[in-house]
């Protein structure tokens, strides 16, 4: 039986009727039309689907949309404000923290969470904080550099 859910995504209200088995990632991409969060593995491993739920990073392929009823979600689309990239987005751009870009929306959301918890992380803390996000292209070093740059610690 379908259920009605009401939630806020990137500050905007959404109300929809959904099947309980609808995964949040499918709701975001196919119902709300937000294709920034990607589907990589769909098995809770790669982190490409990472979004913020109540301010904490979660894998939206491992959550039902009904669990988000009444909650606040931020996707990669919600970061840039007034045409200016978020500092984390800008740092990934400047430091070549991406190649194909497939993992990037998840990497950036996980980085938002990492810097919120620990504003000046070490290399090791960055790697630990991004353990739930896989990248097939960059070899991670440029991602670590981007996170350091975003933390205002480039070259440190």
């Amino acid at each position: 039986m379908k259920r009605k859910i009401s939630l806020r995504i990137n500050g905007k209200p959404y109300t929809d009727e959904v099947e309980p088995r609808l995964l949040l990632i499918h709701y975001l991409r196919e119902v709300a039309g937000l294709t920034g969060p990607h589907i990589g593995c769909e098995t809770s491993i790669c982190g490409a689907c990472t979004v913020m739920l109540q301010g904490r990073a979660v894998k939206s392929c491992t959550m039902f949309a009904v669990q988000a009823d009444g909650r606040e979600i931020v996707t990669i689309e919600g970061l840039a404000a007034n045409g200016a990239l978020d500092p984390v987005q800008q740092a990934f751009w400047n430091e070549h923290g991406l190649q194909c870009g497939f993992c990037t929306p998840g990497m950036i959301m996980a980085t938002k969470q990492l810097l919120q918890d620990n504003p000046s992380p070490t290399d090791l803390e960055i790697r630990h904080g991004l353990e739930g996000n896989l990248c097939r292209c960059t070899g991670y070093q440029h991602i670590v550099n981007a996170v350091k740059a975003a933390a205002g610690k480039a070259g440190a």
Binding site: S44, L53, V58, T62, A110, Q113, L114, E131, G132
Partner: peptide, 9 residues
Amino acid sequence: IGDVQVRNM
């Protein structure tokens, strides 16, 4: 345990 996203949920 797991990674930060898993620990959050």
